[in-house]
Each structure stands twice: as structure tokens, then as C-alpha cells.
Design a binder for these strands. Sequence first.
DNA 1: CACAGTATTTCTGTATGCACAATCCTCCGA
DNA 2: TCGGAGGATTGTGCATACAGAAATACTGTG
Lengths: 235, 235
Amino acid sequence: MPRNQPLMAPAPGSSAPAATTTATTLAEAIRIALAEDIIAGRLPPGSEIEEHQAAERFGASRTPVREALRELAAAGLVEIEPRRGVRVARLTLERLGEMFEVMAETEAMCARLATHRMSAPERFALQSVHERSAAAVADGDVPAYDALNREFHSALYRCTHNGFLAEHVQALRLRLAPFRRAQFHHADRLRDSFAEHAALLRAVLRGDGEAAAREMRAHMLAAGSSLASTLRPAG
Amino acid sequence: MPRNQPLMAPAPGSSAPAATTTATTLAEAIRIALAEDIIAGRLPPGSEIEEHQAAERFGASRTPVREALRELAAAGLVEIEPRRGVRVARLTLERLGEMFEVMAETEAMCARLATHRMSAPERFALQSVHERSAAAVADGDVPAYDALNREFHSALYRCTHNGFLAEHVQALRLRLAPFRRAQFHHADRLRDSFAEHAALLRAVLRGDGEAAAREMRAHMLAAGSSLASTLRPAG
DNA sequence: CACAGTATTTCTGTATGCACAATCCTCCGA
DNA sequence: TCGGAGGATTGTGCATACAGAAATACTGTG
């Protein structure tokens, strides 16, 4: 099935044999590398990307770099002004809020659908992820919790049994990633996030889709406002 | 504000001074032209697009054609298999169903948010669009109803007062467009669609967001299943 | 010293050329 | 007749070259 390739490598901290995981084409490799740079904050929002310089960095010509940049633009990670140049997407606070709302509503949708459709093994797996994240909270291990948080949400996406939806919301998440890096700076947020997951999980396990949606929406909005409070005016 | 350019020209049947509306760049013009061809069905799902031949058709070189194709791929209108070629996206029935579900849920989200946020003038405008579409139904004027249907939904998007959401759902709509061309073939579907809009509008006007969401979901699913019944196995 | 106008530089947009991968075709052998 | 090896062909991926727009530096004038 010649589906659309994902914008990034399978998982940012995956267990796969490091690099050369997927790179059928130079342009694709460059796209992945640039996306990682943007998401990791090495290319902060607003910074300019010059084609020639990027090409040099990757030991390639401008052609594949241009292709990579076009695709990143389509995904919303960079902005292209014709004949002016490319820069990493920089959002107004208003637009960031709008994106968070869409994210929250879409995740809520996932939670509701997943509640009604997930299988018993899936239920068990979700619970397991949540339990493992408890340890990370106890240790204050931010990177570990961050990874488990992603896994928790991804598991929920899969439980919708709607592959397109899963890809769709994952793309949204990717697009917001550059602005969520400070997500768990405060230990408070870590604990709150875990508690919200717990409430969500309870709703899911008792089969109350609407409640699950509400919990998820609240969870995402809490994350959003926590983020907003740590953000300087124009990220 | 250097936001992301839309994938297509403003409106397929707009009143703007025809061509040369927007075309800062050759690649962009080609992208728009190809998108229109795909959506209008002149390039049906599954058909191959050969770079050289497309370039010749537009009197350009392969370079801008390639860029256009990458962007179309990112939007999901075409599929690129590295070193194999490009073809207009062809969906399995399963995936089409998944996309319709996401579309339905997202439109429902829009309806709910719009209900709670729209202003009095917006309410009036939405009603006006609906009333105009009544005439199209009475005349059995399919193209007119099609246009008004789009306008009805677009108006609702705007009423969410969430610009990102509006763009987001519009992109979804665009992506499904190649598979919705047979939408109002049956006069029955025309009348049903109008009736569903009426029910939706009633819910919106009495401020019942949840009901509006339900009506919208039902409306979209009805459209989807009507479409499925007129579709050969692998569109 | 400020500023308008011009020259220069820089970088994007497009064209062209080359190399290699994928496919197709031919032809030979079982 | 069928299957497969090997070469020809087609078309993509990438590099390079060139033209023109935008940004910058420069110069002369008020």
C-alpha cells in the first residue's frame, strides 16, 4: 500500500537501530532531520533557514533541501514567503490558542471513539502504560514521563480503530510540538497530568465515552494553559 | 502575516476575475491547476502523473512540477512512491470510511462550537444561505445547491471563530473532494440534505450545541453512506 | 547628518543535464 | 509453453547553471 509517508521518523526516541532507519531518498532524510531540529528546538520558531547553507550542512545540493522545505511547509512546521525565504513557523498567541483548542477537541474525539471501540487487550495495555508512568512521576523523571505520556495518547489513538484519525491527530501533535517543549517543567504539572490521565482512564474503563471526552478536553486545556503561563509573548 | 498559503485558489467557482488571481510562483500555479484537475475528476484517482509530461503541458520544466507534486502529496491528494512515480490518491473503501468519520466528527465539532459562539449577524447570514438553497432544491438545480451547500458549511466553520479550525476542516474537505463528486446525483439526496440542514439550523438557532453536533454528524454520515452506495469498489 | 537613488550582492525560482533505479523487452534454455 | 537472465528504455532523484527579485551597501545631494 503506497500510503503517505509520515513526516518524521517513526519515534523520536525509538529503539530502532539508530539512523538509516528510513531514508529511501535524500530529500526525505533532510526532511526528517530538519523536522527533528525544529521539534527539538535547535531551530527555534522564527529562525531563518537558508537553502544553500542547509544544503551544505547535509552535503547535498539545494534541490532536495527545497523539496524537504516544501513538505515541512505543507505540514505547518515552516513558513515560506515566495522569493523571501523560509523560516520556522512562528505563531501568534491567538493562533496557538486556536491550535490547542482543535487539538483538545480532536483528542477528546479520540477518547470518546476509543472508549466505545477498544478491545480488552487494548484496555489492559493502556492501563499498563498508565501504571508505568506512575513510577516516572514518583521519580520526577521528566523525560520518562514525557515518553510515557506520548505513548498513552498514541495508544488511545490506535484504540479508535481509525487509522486515518490516528495519523491525523498525530500530525496535529507534531505541528504543535515545537511549542510544547516546556511542557513538564514544573513538577506540579507532572503530577496534575498524571491525575488527569487517571481520571480519563477511569472514564474509559467504565465505558463512559462522553466523560472520557470531557476528561481529555480538560486534560489538554490544562496542558495548554500551563504552557501559556510559561511562554513569552510570541514563541 | 506570512501564513501558509491555501492549497487551492480561493474558491472553485468564485466571482474573482478568473485566472491570474493568485500566482506568485510557477510552482504554485501548477499546484493549483493540478489540484483543480484532481478535484474536478479530470485526473481520476489512480491515474499516474508523469513529471515530464506535466511539465510539457504547463510549458515549464520538471522542477516546479516536482515541487507542486510534493505539496499535493503532503495534502494527501496524490501519492508518491519513491523512484516509482506519482499517482492521484486512490483510497481503499475502508480508508474512505475512516476519512468520512473524521470529517463527520470534525464538522460536528464545528457545529457545536459555532452554536455557542456565533454572533447575531452570523446567525442571520447562515439562515439566509439556507433559505437560498431552498430555491435550488425546488428547481433541482444541482450545481447551485452544491455551491450553497459548500457556503453553508463554510459559514459554519467561520462561526467557530477559530481560524485554524476553519482552515483545518477545509483542508479535510479538499482532501475528500475527489471522492465526493457524485454527491447529489439523486434528487432524493438533494432533498434529504436540505432537510438535514434545516434540522441542524434549528438546533443552532435554539442554541443547543450538542444537538447541532448530533445533527451535523448524522448529516455527514448520511452523505457518506449515500456516496458509498453509488461508488464502485475502489474509487 | 538624513535621505533618495543607484549599484552590488545575495538568495530564490527555474531550467537543464547526468546517473541510477525500476520496468520492459528480448532471447535463450528447460 | 514457461521461466529467467540480460540488456535497452523510461523516468525519477540529484546536481549544477542561470536569471531575476529582494535585500544590502554605497554614493551623492539636500
